[in-house]
């Protein structure tokens, strides 16, 4: 392959316990640590490993988001991406629009493979990769836990409900990553310095011709229903009694 395109979304860090704003107008993101969506980090790591095996020439990282998403792209460059593209958008971008924007980038860049996380851990939608594949008219291999690069095709092991499914897809294709595909590398300080010199281009979202789609709007945010406080028991006898008390045995 000549080129892999990797999507990197800027999201609230995995370890942050997200809260609804006091007035219910959204999610509290002020002063919250932001990171690369963990599944996207796995996607980039996989691209790097494919390159290390000599199966691809160039890796381009792309993000759709605010100016601050440059931070995540710089991290991606430090991990080893060759260059980066920020599609600058100051409003939240829905999945269909994100897929349309990525399709336009695909047309410009002509990668053989697009690697994306299976879902972003903010909205948990799990849509963009499948939508991009549909719009592009190309194969999708979602929830990948192993990728083998062949001649003009990929063999992908996918995590499905009953186990692992293997599919073969012709290139170009879209692959979305699951947790066990790999463990992303840590970024080293010299790489962070080097990444500062790598190209990071910015494109205004409007320039890509994809109008935001407001077919589905979020109108309210609330915390989930709390479970009732439980009881602690001292020993197995106490546990058995509590279970019998609830009529479960």
């Amino acid at each position: 392959m000549k080129k892999i395109l990797v999507g990197l979304k800027r999201v609230v860090d995995y370890n942050v316990r997200v809260r609804v704003r006091g007035d219910g107008s959204g999610v509290e993101t002020d002063g919250v640590k932001m990171s690369i969506n963990p599944f996207d980090e796995i996607a980039l790591e996989e691209a790097l490993r494919i390159r290390e095996r000599g199966d691809v020439g160039e890796i381009v990282a792309v993000s759709i988001g605010p100016a601050e998403a440059q931070q995540q792209l710089r991290t991606g460059l430090a991990m080893g991406a060759d260059r980066a593209i920020l599609v600058r958008s100051d409003r939240d971008v829905d999945s269909l629009t994100a897929a349309r924007m990525l399709l336009e980038i695909v047309r410009r860049e002509e990668p053989e493979l697009v690697l994306l996380g299976k879902q972003a851990i903010d909205n948990d939608n799990n849509q963009t990769g499948q939508m991009l594949a549909a719009l592009w008219g190309r194969p999708q291999a979602t929830f990948a836990s192993k990728i083998d690069v062949g001649d003009g095709k990929l063999t992908v092991k996918r995590e499905v409900d009953v186990g692992l499914e293997t599919v073969e897809v012709d290139l170009p294709a879209v692959v979305t990553t699951d947790l066990r595909l790999n463990e992303p590398r840590y970024v080293k300080l010299p790489d962070i310095m080097k990444a500062k010199k790598k190209p990071l281009d910015e494109i205004d979202a409007a320039e890509l011709g994809a109008e935001p789609d407001d077919g589905i709007r979020t109108v309210a945010w609330e915390p989930p229903a709390e479970r009732q406080k439980g009881i602690m028991v001292e020993d197995v006898a106490g546990l058995v009694a509590a279970l019998k008390d609830k009529g479960l045995f």
Binding site: S95, D124, Q127, G129, Q130, M131, F143, V160, D161, D213
Partner: peptide, 23 residues
């Protein structure tokens, strides 16, 4: 919202040019 539906439905939605409500 099983692996089957998660894989399939966004592809259906995009072919129909609409967004999807997940879960």
């Amino acid at each position: 919202s099983t692996m089957f539906g998660k894989d399939l439905m966004p592809r259906v939605a995009a072919l129909l040019e609409v967004n999807q409500v997940s879960d």
